[in-house]
Amino acid sequence: MSNAAHRAAAFVLFILFAAYGLEALTIPLFPGQEQEPFKPRTLPVALAAVGMLLMLIRILRLYRSAGTEAGPGIAGFRWAPAALLCVAMLAYGFLMVPLGFVLATTLFLTVGFAILGERRRGVLLFLPVVFSLAFFLLMTEGLGLYLAPGAWFGL
């Protein structure tokens, strides 16, 4: 990872710390609370100040050092499957209520297996269904948890 990338990341974090600090200053107080030694915004403001100070030190150190910094190199990283898995997780969350646990889980696992290169149709179609049903039965019958069948099926 290049020094410039580390500097950019440090700047992003510095901005986040600053935004957190600004938001902390807007935390409402009850009347008379301003005079108290401890307020709901005391720790957040202190943390924002410490965070910004640490980030400034890091940024200055990054400008002084010419070499690369700690952290794994990213050459050869497989970004596409990782990003697609993140999208699949978000979709899993969106589909959980309308489709229900079993169908949403089956879809998530099928898509997850496919994203990572599984091409055997038997595995893609059979395994997620069996796994989701088994897990559903274990939770509902075994542990007594109620898992909604899905809004579409409840209509």
Binding site: I27, F38, P40, V50
Partner: peptide, 23 residues
């Protein structure tokens, strides 16, 4: 820095002393 981020995340929610919502 990671420690401070963790502490910041812990401040999200209802303030335990006054019951005021933060972040």
């Amino acid at each position: 820095i990671a420690t401070v981020i963790g502490l910041m995340l812990a401040t999200v929610g209802t303030d335990p002393s006054a019951g005021i919502q933060r972040f």
